[in-house]
């Protein structure tokens, strides 16, 4: 998608003082972003504050009172909850990295193909599969690789000790909605790699591998790690698939949250679930704190 940018002589605007233009620009930018920020503050911020208040509310069932306190937060970082949080982080990190890499390869394969129908079909299918999850996804994989699954019985996989219901089995299933997401996110970035750059590299004697290493990947890096963060977040917050497939054999923090907020057994643990959610947000904050400087460094030479 090469766009020919017209070359024009600088117009009268350019004679304005650069300092004045920059402050005018900055305040106008914030104005342009105001509807979005306001909307998110209302639709996301207010429920988030409600969750925050709940996380720090400690209820006393005996006296039927409630007060602010840290008990929920400290409980949420101990014992079974800490194991679950750590396992969730491990799973999401693995899926983010592996899914990110595989997704990029797939996206490149699609972008490089000549047929537009294949491209549209794969892109739309990726959009659909990126949101395919929960019980139907779990069932599809149980039907394929479960103890009585199609492939398991066909190839006798049960005898080799393979089981879908482990950490790695769950990771394979999580890749099913992560890879398409990466494809959808990376395709615009891959489209932005101008064929002229490739031609220029080839003309200068670079091999395909060198082109990718010195031109392609560095240009893609911001979008790449951004996509991986997206994959991390998506896997981190996923719940229904694991609930239907592995139960508690792979401890995940989202399972514990759902147990307390939407279950048939635990009563009165809602605030603990909100504290666990707050833990998840803190983990995400840590991930963002690592990601943002990385992204800035990788895109600095592109500005």
């Amino acid at each position: 998608m090469a766009i020919a940018t017209p070359t024009i002589a600088p117009g009268p605007d350019k004679t304005a003082g650069p300092a004045r233009k920059k402050t005018g620009q900055a305040s106008r930018s914030w104005l342009a972003a105001l509807p979005l920020l306001l909307f998110l503050a209302l639709a996301f911020g207010i429920p988030a504050i409600a969750v925050l208040i709940g996380a720090f509310t400690v209820e006393d069932p005996v006296n039927n009172t409630s007060r602010l306190g840290l008990e929920n937060m400290t409980d949420s970082l101990q014992g079974a909850y800490r194991t679950a949080l750590w396992a969730s982080v491990k799973l999401s990190a693995f899926v983010a990295v592996v899914g990110g890499v595989l997704g990029t390869f797939l996206a490149q394969a699609v972008v490089a193909s000549k047929g537009t129908f294949l491209r549209e079909a794969v892109l739309t299918a990726s959009g659909v599969l990126a949101n395919f999850g929960g019980v139907p996804l779990a069932f599809a994989w149980i039907a394929t690789l479960g103890n009585a699954g199609l492939l398991t019985t066909m190839f006798g996989l049960g005898d080799t000790g393979f089981s879908l219901y482990t950490f790695w089995g769950l990771a394979i299933v999580y890749l099913y909605f992560s890879i398409p997401l990466m494809v959808v996110v990376m395709t615009p970035a891959l489209d932005g790699l101008r064929p002229q750059w490739r031609e220029a590299a080839l003309n200068n004697g670079a091999s395909g591998w060198q082109y990718w290493r010195h031109v392609g990947v560095p240009v893609l890096t911001p979008a790449l790690i951004g996509g991986m963060v997206l994959l991390f977040g998506g896997s981190f917050a996923a719940y229904a698939t694991a609930a239907a497939m592995v139960g508690a054999t792979v401890p995940l923090v989202t399972l514990q949250i759902a147990d307390a907020l939407s279950g048939n057994v635990l009563v009165g643990h809602e605030n603990l679930a909100l504290a666990l959610s707050l833990d998840m947000v803190i983990v995400a904050g840590i991930v963002m704190a690592i990601y943002l400087p990385l992204r800035n460094r990788s895109s600095r030479w592109l500005q």
Binding site: S29, L37, P47, A50, G54, G233, A273, M288
Partner: peptide, 30 residues
């Protein structure tokens, strides 16, 4: 040309991703 806004936007726009839908509903219900 507002790079600081970009950072804020990035964080704010990625945050809803890590809140599991069930917690989000709990917040909305409250």
């Amino acid at each position: 040309g507002a790079p600081r806004l970009g950072q804020v936007l990035e964080v704010v726009c990625t945050l809803p991703l890590v809140v599991p839908p069930i917690t989000f509903v709990a917040g909305i219900s409250t």
